[in-house]
Amino acid sequence: MTAYTATVTVRLKHGVLDPEAETTKRSLERLGFDLEALRSADRFEIDLEADSAGNAEEEVEEMAERLLANPTIHDYDIDVAERE
């Protein structure tokens, strides 16, 4: 077994309104920053052990499908790296 850290990034699907991001953007503009757009995302870092990076990814994909993301509104991506 090898130790991995899987990073899951969960984002709203393109076109789904993100009122929190809009509010954050407006706040940054109020602070004098000039920006075109702001998107927010949730990031989960999961430490786990698996036989291979592929197996780790498969396990984490199931976590994303079953809880971390809501497929109705979210897309997600997973990045798996070996842990020192």
């Binding site: 789904v16 309104l17 993100d18 009122p19 929190e20 809009e22 509010t23 809501n70 109705t72 509104i73």
Partner: peptide, 8 residues
């Protein structure tokens, strides 16, 4: 899904 109000 029921998600964040437009007004936030």
């Amino acid at each position: 899904a029921f998600t964040t109000n437009e007004s936030a």
